[in-house]
Design a protein around this nucleic acid. Structure first.
Length: 260
DNA sequence: ATGCCAGGTAACACCTGA
């Protein structure tokens, strides 16, 4: 029996983050990484640099916005790009692959949904319905599976520094929270919360208004585990180190460790 | 009430983010 560390990290542009990200890979040595907001097409992903660091790479990018990727120290098999359920959806926000032979992982960049009252919020809610339907279908396979990423949902009022500051935000709306709960309650386990139930743990701090220095954060990056993955969960956490560095992403990695 | 900061694109301003 050995264990693997799986981390999710919204890098806010892989090209802008490359030196920081390579330093983090070396220091933290995750076995699998789920990336969001790579903000480039597949051809422009810095594949060689990341392969040189010891990782296999699978990408699902697009120009300027969004984009997800999976990195693994082992080959990435059976890659599927895009979230099923809407053939007209061209935004690169979802991909899956199998790592370590039998661990199914998905990288998720759920729509932000702001501002309320626009088609952006409608798109967010529709995307969440599609995600729930898809996960429900995948759970039938009883695989060791991890759905990790930037869910753009603050699950409860204790997952934000001041709920009043976010009360009109798509991330805290009852509809957003209800759909997140519906996904969670399919039988998934929140890896972070299994070991760290305390309030006011954050994975995101705005660049503006000194949010990092004041610890005015949000918890929006989550790792949801199938029962078969949860049975193997041994540790989890948030690595705040990258957020404190120069040229940081506004997010920081959330990770879990599984026995395989 | 709004902008604050950061990244990308394209162009020397605007869009998006959460």
């Amino acid at each position: 029996m050995s264990s693997i560390k799986i981390a999710t990290f919204n890098v806010n542009s892989i090209k802008a983050r490359l030196p920081n990200f390579l330093a983090w890979l070396k220091a933290f040595s995750p076995d699998v990484v789920l990336l969001q907001e790579i903000k480039c097409i597949d051809e422009n992903f810095p594949r060689l640099e990341i392969e040189d660091a010891g990782y296999n790479v699978a990408t699902h990018g697009q120009k300027t916005y969004n984009g997800v990727a999976i990195l693994s120290k082992t080959p990435i098999e059976d890659v599927v790009r895009g979230l099923p359920g809407d053939p007209t959806d061209e935004q690169a926000r979802y991909m899956e692959g199998t790592v370590y032979g039998s661990v199914r992982v998905a990288a998720i960049y759920l729509p932000n949904g702001n501002p309320l009252g626009t088609e952006k919020f409608t798109y967010k809610l529709g995307w969440m319905d599609r995600l729930k339907t898809h996960i429900q279908r995948r759970l039938v396979d009883e695989e060791i599976a991890v759905w990790g990423g930037d869910y753009n949902v603050i699950p409860t009022d204790t997952d934000v520094w001041d709920p009043r500051a976010m009360k009109d935000d798509a991330l805290t709306q009852p509809e957003s929270r209800a759909k997140f709960r519906a996904i969670h309650h399919l039988g998934l386990t929140d890896a972070l919360r299994s070991f760290h139930p305390q309030p006011h743990l954050y994975s995101y701090w705005d660049y503006q208004a000194g949010a990092w220095q004041k610890d005015h954060g949000l918890l929006i990056d989550h790792l949801l585990l199938s029962p078969q993955a949860a049975d193997r969960l041994t540790a989890s956490g948030i690595d705040k180190t990258p957020r404190g560095q120069e040229k940081a992403s506004d997010h920081t990695p959330v990770w879990c460790e599984l026995n395989i």
